[in-house]
Structure formats: structure tokens, C-alpha cells
Design a protein around this nucleic acid. Sequence first.
DNA 1: ACCTGAACACCGTTCAAGT
DNA 2: ACCTGAACACCGTTCAAGT
Lengths: 234, 234
Amino acid sequence: MPRERLNRDRVLQAAVALADRSGIDAVSMRALAQDLGVVPMALYKHVRDKDELLDGMVDVLIDEFEPPDPALDWKAAIRHRLLSARRVVLRHPWARKAIESRTRRTPTVLAYMDSVTGMFRAAGFSADLTHHLMHALGNRIWGFSPELFEEPRDDDAPPLTNEQQAALAAEFAQRYPHILEVAMAATRGDLSGVGAGCDEEFEFGFALDLLLDGAERLHARHWSSRSGDTARPA
Amino acid sequence: MPRERLNRDRVLQAAVALADRSGIDAVSMRALAQDLGVVPMALYKHVRDKDELLDGMVDVLIDEFEPPDPALDWKAAIRHRLLSARRVVLRHPWARKAIESRTRRTPTVLAYMDSVTGMFRAAGFSADLTHHLMHALGNRIWGFSPELFEEPRDDDAPPLTNEQQAALAAEFAQRYPHILEVAMAATRGDLSGVGAGCDEEFEFGFALDLLLDGAERLHARHWSSRSGDTARPA
DNA sequence: ACCTGAACACCGTTCAAGT
DNA sequence: ACCTGAACACCGTTCAAGT
């Protein structure tokens, strides 16, 4: 019984709530309509199509990002901003997939990108260098970096016996020695199952700092505003 | 008329051909079956479900990557390998989306990751540093980096008049001044439409070199094998 | 062993109609 | 202005049956 009239914001909030509860794949126009006690077609008065619904959901996330902190120096400020985006993305497990699937640039997305870009400019970087840095940051401006070693947690998988684990590890070690070695280093030898998760938070900060430090070094070297081949980091 | 019997490879090749022709969204079990002159259910003898079909398609791409060139030094070798992955991804426009949507790690994917990891190890990097670098590279090991400024080419959009372009640019400049400034720098002022494409090839190389140079610097500084907070790049 | 036919339980979206 | 009902053209996947 929808005593309250539908509007765009109610639709988006309900979609976010549904995704939080049941994952992004559960967000269908029909299921969302049911949540709102309304017929599917009613939604189309408030979002043009499903893509616009997903765009709107990402906009809701961006609204949760903390604004820039003017008290911090440039590097700390960008770090703080991106880590705040990260916290939001971690609160909404569906966010990564949703962000990666988006192709349209809403005004909210553009405003966020403009703001991060402006932080580099305010730090004194040239427009050209800033452009390259934004590309180098890539998805990290959303608070995440692409998963490489992360295990897709297989919820309803049967637990392995110790013998099965050992056999699996032995085969893995033989076929993918470098991955195993690196995973051992990442987990200090505590592999509970092959492909155990690593500290993704640390990895995020590591890559971020590597890029920001590289930026500082290039800037200090009087990076020219031309982006020809000679401008490559030596 | 399927005179030739179906097998996994024929299924995957047909799926890749279909995606090349009509995009990844056109790859449905039903459409693929029709291409093969077969009923949809026949496919399920060769792939477990649609996810496994997509995994298989990515494996086909990886098989097109060039093997490592042992004549090159480590940095050039990794650069060469990732640029070869990049050429494959560019040949198949659907590849980015497909790769980003994958969550399972097939043996082919693991073998590729193992090989790239091994190149860092062969260069003398510690397992720990190698782990962080793989994370920092992220999607770049697939030959692409996340799109930020790229325009989703709107194929059937009506061309804008000069007046419309000017008005749009003026509004854009007011709302997103930093993005515009940076886009101007990237295109040397030749903006044919707001959000004109930049040289993504250059951006890929830029980020790659920034990360590889950072790696070299950390390695030279006797990067410890511990990954505690003190190990952050200063 | 491999393929088929019919069915199930879903999708996003259109259109014309209701209030 | 906002919501509804019925319909269209699709999906992935199951099951039991054919050859």
C-alpha cells in the first residue's frame, strides 16, 4: 500500500536498500517495484530505464563520500578523500560491480571527478600531468583497485579435509609456483585454503602512495606541459 | 546443419566470433546455439553454464597473448608482455567488459598471472614486493586501465550544431572547470565535443612506467620482505 | 554420448488505458 | 500527472525423452 507517492529519490533509496540486502543481481525493475508496492511500469516515470536506475544508485554512493578536507596537504587530502570513497564502497558490497558496469557520466560523477582533478591542480600540478595521474589512479578514485588475488568467497562450498587441502596445495605449487610463493609472502605462510585473501586495504594504500610519490617526483623535475614521448617518466 | 560434431572449442570459438560481430551482450546461450545450428540445450554438454562460457572466452583471448621474450630486460619484458595483452584486448572490443565481469580463476588465467608474477621474481624482486606490484598493476596486466575520461561513443546521437556545442562547452566549463582544463591539455585544445577521447595508449604506458619505475626504486632501496606499515613507500 | 522438446521461472520495455 | 494491465520479445536452465 503506497500511501506515499513515488519519486526519484524513494526509488533510488529502495534500490540501494535492495542491493544492500540481496546483491546487485537481485535489483530488477520487477523486484524493485514489488518492494515499493507498485507495478513495474510505475518506475519508468522516475527513471528512464534500468541503466539510469543503476547510474542513480552510484550517485547515491557518491553523495556519501566525505568532502575534501582543506586542512590537509595535497597528498594527505587526496589520500583521505579516496579512503573515504573506499569506506563507502566497502559498506555496499555491490558497489564495485555497479561502478565498473557504468558507462554514462552523470553530473554527480562529473562533479566528483572534477573535484579530485581540482585537488591535483591546487597542489600545483600541470593540467597535463594531472590528466595522466587521473588515468594512473583509475578505479582507485572510487576507493578500490581491481582484484587479482582475491578469492571469490564460495559461500556454500563444502569444507575441505586436511588431506584434500594438502593435495590441492601440492598441485597448485607445481603448476603455479610464483603465485603460491607470493601468496605465502602475503599471508606469512598462513594459507587457509589456496588463494587466501590478502590485506586489500594495505594494497590500496601501497598503490596509492606509489602513484602519489611518483607524481611528486615528476612534478619536482619540472614536468613539461607537453605529453610527447620524451615526457615519459625516465 | 551441424555435420561436424559440437565440442568445447567449437563452442568457444563461435562465442568469440559472435561477440566480435555483435558485442558481448549479444552472446546469449540461445543466440550462440542458433549460430551453431543447434538447440540451446546442446551447449550445456560442453559448458556448465553461461559463466563458464564467458570464462572460456577469456581463456581464448589469453591464448592469443604473446609469450614472454627472454631477450629483454625485466622492465622491457613486462612492458612487452602487457602491451601484447593490450593488442589482443583492442582486437576484441568486448574483452574489457568480459574480463571485468569474471570472478572465477581458470587454470589459463592462473597460468598467465603466474607467468607475470614470475617475471618480477626473475628480476630479483622479493615475493612481498611482487605481490604489492601485481596489485598496483591491477587491470593493467590485462592490457587496459579503467576508463575515466573516455567518452562512451554514442553511435546514433544526432550531430550537434556549432551553437549547441558552444553552449554545452560553456555550461561544462562553469560546472566542471578542472575536467575541462585537463581535457584541453590532453587534446591540445582540439575538443570536438565535450569529453573528447585522449590517447589511451599513451596513458597506459605512462601508468605502467610510473609503477615499474617506482618498483625499481623500492627494490634498489633494499625493500624488506616485511609488509608492515614502515614498509610503505616513503 | 550427444542432442532435442517442452516447460519453468524469470527478464526489460511498449502501448493504450485508467484515475 | 501518475499509475495500471496486458502483452511482446526475450533470458538461463531443469527435466525427461529421443537417437
